[in-house]
Nucleic acid binder design. Sequence first.
DNA 1: AGATCAACCGACAGTGGTGTCGGTAACTGG
DNA 2: CCAGTTACCGACACCACTGTCGGTTGATCT
Lengths: 205, 205
Amino acid sequence: MATTDTVRRRLSAPARRQRIEAAAVEVFAGRGYDAASVGEIASAAGVSRTVLYDHFRSKRELYLQVLDSQNAAMLAEVGAGITGAGAGADRLRATVAAYLSFARQRPAARRLLVDPVPTGDPDLDSVLAAYRTARAQAVTSMLAPDLARSGLQAGATGSAVVVELLITGVDGVARWWQEHPDVALDEVTDVAARLLWNGLPRLSR
Amino acid sequence: MATTDTVRRRLSAPARRQRIEAAAVEVFAGRGYDAASVGEIASAAGVSRTVLYDHFRSKRELYLQVLDSQNAAMLAEVGAGITGAGAGADRLRATVAAYLSFARQRPAARRLLVDPVPTGDPDLDSVLAAYRTARAQAVTSMLAPDLARSGLQAGATGSAVVVELLITGVDGVARWWQEHPDVALDEVTDVAARLLWNGLPRLSR
DNA sequence: AGATCAACCGACAGTGGTGTCGGTAACTGG
DNA sequence: CCAGTTACCGACACCACTGTCGGTTGATCT
């Protein structure tokens, strides 16, 4: 026989890039930046290791590229819930639901963007830190009127604490839900959103 | 001169072990298990790399040892708050305060034990997972009466969600506090504990 | 003081990672 | 059907890290 059963196929450069990025998301999320190897990413993308270097200058650049695109995806999906219609409890609930859905559908993206994994490289860490502060800022502005009603100024430390508790707490719920897939989205969303919303009043002392 | 300014000192084996462990806590927490190198730990302990192998069989065993001792320390410090006197809001507040204090005094230990860093080694990950479920269990039993008052059974999914939200949320606050050291413990504790406690009632639908 | 113990280290082998270079063969336009 | 582009790859150099072995020297006990 002249050929094996798997015919050697050539993809266009953008298509190959896309596949490599998709594989990189999984591997980076699963192992962390340092422990992830270019070889593992390449073979997960169904390609030799050198092909990866034909498309990306280095492991580092690939990582930054992946972070950027995944962050954009998350912003698009969850940010929509934040700026969506409704006010107060409804908007909070919608945002929680949007985040939980996103984390469910793209668990690797969630890990990459929010799980705190120090790389040692200040540049890389600062990129992640920038994403974090941007998310906190978005949630802060979403909750600003409700926080004010509770007696917390926008810049007050109490506001920052509430926002941080909310973001990390909901993320923890998302991680829990990932390991308990049988539970319905509505149930999880209800408990989390209600707990947080009911807790908001009477915070200042 | 015959000797340098730093005189070569020999420590007893337990003392040296202790110093190596202390250095390992910092390095493992800072870089993660995979990226941390034995050489970095050794030099942080003020000793050659081979000395480390005289005291620990491998990097892996050192890591497990460090995890165990740090987990014990956290259990002792925070667990005291959980089982402490008082019920309901007071007990929750005391636990939050205890955790925040612990995270403040031993940031590396907090990172090691609760920041989710996959190592790829199933054994190592399962140890961390066991710590996590133990913590969740402890918080669940602490909140059991209050959860029941809100209409949530101990084994219900709602309880698990609440506990997860609480643990990860308070941990997020601890991380935030670490980067804002000027804020008083009381203020942070008040906001977090009140938000969570006020949110507890009327959770079931 | 001298002998013994063990804390300490330099040097080595083995392994696995990143990034590079030249060549090969699959698509594509004429 | 032929030529040119380029997606693809094997092999290589280089480096960092883990774990080992023999020797050295500070501490301790008599």
